[in-house]
């Protein structure tokens, strides 16, 4: 029987109960949210389970939601089961003041650079990462540039401020 989103969801609920929330399927990809202490357990379960076999980490990155207090940073994992060709996405949310999340480097060698990149741009502190230093930005940088508090000039702005056009 081919693996479907429903089977995966059922298996995860059987294992973790109602700790996993926000089950949605935007554009057909199963998406859910896990508590941040459980991220490694979920990854390990998805990796080890003989039916699920999500053994390929496609992508890992963060998103900053400054308005949701206490859960400002979302770390998003994209996993791929190459045998059954099915993808899955799950998120963990963390407080921006204590952005500590367990590192997936022990499970996926590919997580090394991806977590460094996420740290570099969002300041997510991956506990257990062997070498968590900046990767794309300069080492001296003392802020995390992809956070929303650093806006660029809005090219699609509605105010059309004349100052922006040199006429202020």
């Amino acid at each position: 029987m081919p693996l479907t989103n429903e089977i995966i969801q059922q298996k995860l609920i059987d294992k973790f109960g109602d700790q996993l929330i926000d089950w949605v399927q935007p554009y057909g990809m199963l998406t859910f949210t896990a508590p941040k202490d459980l991220n490694l357990k979920v990854l390990q379960f998805l990796f080890d389970d003989t039916e699920l076999k999500f053994q390929f980490l496609t992508d890992l990155q963060a998103v900053h939601y400054p308005d949701s207090k206490g859960a400002e940073l979302a770390i998003v994992y994209h996993l791929h089961n190459l045998t059954d060709n099915i993808r899955l996405r799950f998120k963990v949310f963390t407080d921006i003041n204590t952005p500590d999340v367990y590192s997936a480097t022990a499970l996926y060698a590919s997580a090394n650079f991806m977590e460094r990149e996420t740290y570099d741009f969002f300041g997510v502190n991956f506990t257990g990462h062997p070498n968590l230093i900046r990767i794309l930005n300069v080492d001296e940088m003392d802020y995390f540039p992809m956070r929303k508090e650093f806006p660029l000039e809005d090219q699609s702005r509605v105010d059309k401020d004349d100052e922006m056009f040199g006429r202020g």
């Binding site: 900046r134 660029l152 699609s156």
Partner: peptide, 16 residues
């Protein structure tokens, strides 16, 4: 790595 990083992801957040 990172010698020619150009912050495309940041730029993309302000572009149609």
């Amino acid at each position: 790595v990172g010698y020619i990083h150009r912050a495309f992801e940041k730029l993309a957040e302000r572009r149609p």
